[in-house]
Design a protein around this nucleic acid. Structure first.
Length: 1002
RNA sequence: GCCCGGGUGGCGAAAUUGGUAGACGCAACAGACUUAAAAUUUGUCGACCGCAAGGUCAUGUGGGUUCGAUUCCCACCCCGGGCACCA
């Protein structure tokens, strides 16, 4: 921490306000007087109690390293909001606890050779110390810890309910396995093919697993994000980015299951005496509208049919070798979308396109994923980027069946409905210069616009001949070389130059000039347009310049540079009876036509819920020789995690618990025979999936939460935490919440009404704060030197709350100065006590200042704009220093400041002779008439430039009728600086915007 | 590659139903106080031209719409984040 003054230095310079003494003093008082306790709900009280406000932080994971100044940012924010809400009369629940099961604690324990139970306890103590010096208003009587048996009793209970409903199942499917952490992982725990914890590339490993059927809730998890309340507004006030992440993660797609019949070639069939028993390959596609464009079908290497098809192919060795090569690839290589595609054809067989009876080849390629859809796809290279790349590499056919359909009736700028429509065929010719990277563009004269060479196809002409003729007629160039057809499209637009609508089929053709050879252009053509050569980089700009945004030109232009698949919607061609239909509307028809089935698929996978590690909640099941899997009776919960000598993961796919015979061997709760306990443990996410419920009723031994109490506190009104939990914690918690809703434990469909994420605080060097970079700033050091109030104010003042921002010890000085300014303002107040102070005029001024501040600060805290709230408070203090302030006004001011600087304001408040805590006082309320200025400044523009301004009272400025406007015009014209600009010139127009400005056009 | 954010002084940032760009804070510079320093306090502080009055240019770049654009539209560049062969 460079530049930070030492304690000695600061004790001199910061002596005015002794934060060290005062902050400790008030923290002790608050703790003993228990002023932050939420009111406890009981049967008697429930109807009479005040409105609740439940505000929650994502609880921390107490690692050995401790907190840095970035961590408290969110905690400070909830603290500020909770304090304001309390002062506004709400019964506030603002709890804190610790999430401590899982790999980090376990790895730390292994490294330091201490029992995780011991190290977690130690870390929690350290974390609490760090938290407490910030002066937060947590109700510590409700503290929870996920590793406490009294807590995980209920985590296990929830698991049992899930199991009983058939939503937890045993699976032996290959799952993600981290070879370093030696445990299976859920999909959510894998990032870019690597273990989210340690960065090791994951492997696929078949393993016995407990899996939760989160996919049963996919639809509800998706739909309820957009749930509307009774007034039609979004029920969940969540950041759009998180809503989107969740939707992407759930990944709903609607498509069709279609069957392609397998046909074995005659020679092949003859040489084999047996037939393959499989008859068809089923594919999943979201684009059944492109079915006529299928030119091959692809199976994933792991597809179930592959083994059987191998019996009948002619190139078995080649195929087997491809498959084994794929198996050896890492998951990262397998799923890298940018790598070149690989594959192998299954020779000797083909499949039949059910739509048109065409025979197409079958390939195996690892770009098809085994575990999505059916593990097989129909390839339509013309309309899918991946199939396109694959087809190009292996020389497979590319068949166009969709052409774009561009509608643009605005380019001519006129209404069109009553005009006649001309159906025609036309060409758009893109012509490249013979030696430079330039292209021909026409400038049309009558209706100014720019286009490529264009014209209608005449009787008996093909598109190439037509294009050549147009090039010659319009520009005279005759030494042209045909390059290629760029594609086709439809265009619907109003051709203002012909005063008719065009419904045209356009062919794009690319030419290159061999030389500049040119014939004379006819006079009549020259009258219509000129041409110019435009640099390739400027083509798009030029076409745009004259609003020539008939997009097919740009579509063809794009094709000249980059040959690619057309993946958007359009009109069907080469599709038999479906020609001319639009791709969006024809999906169901084509699916029905080939007897397919419409289905919905999700990217979301079931939640792999077991870990082969020690430090987690034991899964409360036993395996009985006779009865199979049997739940531990609820009365026997919790199944306590036994003490063990070695926590090291075994790596065998068994948890270390499996080695403790005494614990593993038990009796079947049903038949009493020998049975073994389940030795897998739950993932780290289990405890955090419901913790917010336990805070409501943390000591309840009979149920996880009393229904009456739950009903009072639910849902969480405001939840603040890191954005990195968008697709893990926040999806898991919503899933469990919905499950608990279904079994009647909770009363709301969604757990968190409003969500806000915290922007990270980076190190002073702009990098993430980390021991590795040596840029970590410890909040304890900062608080020692500058005080907690300063730290709180600074972190909120740094910038927008959700924005990532670098720490600056220099910048924090300003917050400390502000704290001292307020402190000194109190001094003034005390010495001026005997009526010498404020003149009536200044009193009125300061009233306005205060009331404006009340309005702005209250609004800003409510809308999470802490930075502008603090800037308002700074402005307020600056102004009040000039006008003076009386006791009542000062009280309002420090109440506004109390959520940000709880210690100093409490001291000032008690210094004014108040006995009760300022934090239990009521929040100031502004008077509307005092919270606005009495005059406004009206700016005066001449031709758009500010030339002067005048003052006017707000009432007149707000009238806005003709008379008031006239008078504002006159005031504007009479300003000397304005006069200078308009004298001797004709005023064409005057625009008056009430309360804002007068704009004079000359 | 696709999808979201974002780009404003030396720095952190304000300001958007389109209406005086740079509030507030940091740093810097000059003055007061002081033996001196710190602290405090007064003032200056986007760039360029000008003695000044004043003017011109400025919100990533280039165009457009408008009396007027940081704000709206089009194209492009850069930064951050998310997703990434999901058919």
């Amino acid at each position: 921490m460079k530049k930070m003054p030492t304690n000695q230095d600061s004790s001199k310079s910061l002596s005015l306000y002794d934060h060290k003494k005062l902050e400790k003093k008030w923290q002790k008082k608050w703790a003993t007087s228990k002023i932050y306790r939420s009111e406890v709900i009981s049967d008697k009280k429930i109807s009479s109690i005040k409105l609740k406000y439940y505000i929650l932080d994502m609880f921390p994971y107490p690692s050995g390293v401790g907190l840095h100044v970035g961590h408290p940012k969110g905690y400070i924010a909830t603290d500020i909001v909770s304090r304001m809400k309390r002062m506004q009369g709400f019964n506030v629940l603002h709890p804190m606890g610790f999430d401590a099961f899982g790999l980090p604690a376990e790895n730390y324990a292994i490294k330091t050779k201490t029992n995780p139970e011991v190290s977690v306890k130690k870390n929690v103590v350290h974390y609490k110390e760090q938290l407490e010096i910030l002066g937060c208003d947590y109700d510590w009587s409700r503290e929870i810890n996920t590793t406490d048996p009294k807590y995980y009793h209920w985590t296990q209970w929830i698991f049992l309910q899930i199991w009983k409903k058939g939503l937890a199942y045993e699976s032996y499917e290959p799952i993600n396995w981290c070879p370093s952490c030696k445990t299976g992982l859920a999909n959510e725990d894998v990032e870019d093919g690597r273990c989210e914890r340690c960065g090791t590339p994951v492997e696929k490993k078949p393993l016995r697993q407990w899996v939760l059927k989160i996919t049963d809730y996919a639809e509800r998890l998706l739909n309820d994000i957009d749930m509307k309340d009774t007034s039609g507004r979004r029920a969940l006030d969540w950041p759009a980015s998180i809503v989107k992440s969740q939707k992407d993660w759930i990944g709903r797609s609607e498509g069709s299951l279609l069957k392609f019949e397998i046909e074995i070639s005659k020679e092949q069939a003859k040489s084999l005496d047996k037939k393959a028993s499989v008859k068809d390959i089923e594919v999943f596609t979201t684009r059944p509208d492109t079915l006529f464009g299928v030119t091959y079908v692809v199976l994933a290497p792991e597809h179930k049919l592959v083994a059987e098809l191998l019996q009948v192919v002619t190139n078995r060795v080649e195929v087997e070798s491809y498959i084994s090569r794929t198996k050896n690839k890492s998951e990262i290589d397998r799923t890298d979308a940018t790598k070149e595609k690989t594959g192998v054809e299954l020779k000797g067989i083909s499949v039949i396109n059910p739509a048109n009876g065409e025979k197409v080849p079958v390939w195996i390629a690892d770009y098809v994923l085994a575990d999505y859809g059916t593990g097989a796809v129909m390839a339509v290279p013309a309309h899918d980027e991946r199939d396109f790349a694959f087809a190009q590499k292996f020389g497979l056919q590319i068949k166009n069946v969709i052409i774009p359909d561009f509608k643009d009736y605005t380019s001519g700028g006129a209404p069109v409905l009553l005009k006649k429509t001309n159906k025609r065929s036309s060409i758009t010719a893109i012509v490249r210069h013979w030696s430079e990277d330039k292209y021909l563009i026409l400038n049309w004269k009558k209706t100014p616009r720019k286009t490529f060479i264009t014209g209608g196809i005449e009787e008996g002409e093909d598109s190439v001949a037509s294009a050549k003729r147009e090039i010659l007629e319009e520009t005279g160039y005759d030494d042209v070389k045909f390059e290629r057809i760029l594609g086709e499209s439809h265009g619907h637009f109003f051709a203002s130059w012909k005063d008719e609508n065009h419904d045209t089929h356009i062919t794009g053709v690319l030419f290159k000039l061999n030389s500049g050879s040119q014939k004379k252009v006819a006079e009549e053509e020259l009258e219509k347009h000129s041409y110019e050569w435009v640099d390739s980089r400027l083509v798009i700009t030029k076409l745009n310049e004259t609003k020539h945004d008939i997009r097919f030109s740009l579509y063809f232009w794009d094709k000249t540079n980059r040959d690619s698949a057309y993946t958007d919607d359009g009109v069907l061609v080469n599709s038999g009876r479906f020609d001319g239909s639009s791709s969006g509307s024809v999906k169901k028809d084509i699916t029905d036509f080939v007897h397919g089935k419409l289905v919905t698929k999700y990217k979301l996978r079931d939640w792999v819920f077991s870990r082969q590690r020690y430090w987690g909640e034991p899964i409360p099941l036993v395996h009985c020789e006779k009865c199979g899997v049997v739940p531990v009776p609820e009365k026997d919960l919790p199944v306590k995690l036994p003490k063990v000598k070695s926590y090291e993961p075994t790596g065998t796919g068994e948890s270390p618990l499996a080695t403790i015979d005494k614990w593993v061997n038990t009796k079947c709760p049903i038949c009493g025979r020998k049975a073994k306990r389940e030795t897998n443990t739950m993932p780290q996410w289990a405890g955090s999936s419901w913790y917010y419920l336990r805070y409501m009723d943390p000591k309840n031994a009979k149920s996880l939460v009393d229904p009456k109490i739950e009903k009072y506190w639910s849902p969480v009104d405001f939840y603040i935490g890191g954005a990195e939990h968008a697709t893990r914690h926040l999806i898991y918690a919503r899933f469990w919440h919905k499950f608990l809703y279904d079994i009647g434990v909770v009363s709301t469909v969604e757990p968190f009404a409003k969500l806000q994420h915290v922007g990270l605080i980076m190190g002073e060097d702009g990098r993430k704060m980390s021991k590795r970079f040596g840029n970590v700033v410890d909040p304890v050091d900062v608080v020692n030197i500058y005080g907690a109030d300063t730290l709180r104010i600074y972190e909120m003042f740094m910038g927008p709350f959700d924005q990532q921002i670098s720490w600056s010890t220099d910048g924090m000085i300003g917050s400390r100065r502000f704290v001292e300014r307020v402190w000194r303002l109190a001094d003034k107040l005390v010495t001026n006590d005997t009526d010498t102070g404020i003149s009536p005029e200044n009193y009125a001024k300061s009233e306005k200042i205060i009331h404006k501040a009340i309005k702005k600060v209250s609004d800003d805290i409510a809308s999470i704009h802490f930075n502008t709230a603090i800037s308002t408070l700074m402005i307020t203090v600056n102004e009040l220093e000039k006008t003076g302030i009386n006791k009542e006004q000062f009280e309002s001011l420090i109440k506004l400041l109390a959520p940000f600087a709880p210690h100093m304001t409490e001291e000032l408040w008690s210094g004014l002779g108040n006995k009760r805590s300022i934090h239990l006082e009521s929040w100031p309320i502004y008077k509307a008439e005092l919270a606005v200025d009495s005059t406004v400044t009206i700016a005066v523009q001449v031709n758009g430039k500010i030339r002067g301004s005048f003052e006017i009272d707000i009432v007149t400025a707000n009238i806005g009728d003709e008379k008031a406007k006239k008078s504002m015009e006159e005031s504007a014209k009479n300003i000397p600086e304005v006069k200078k600009w308009i004298d001797g010139k004709e005023v064409k127009k005057i625009i008056v915007v009430k309360c804002k400005l007068v704009s004079i056009v000359i």
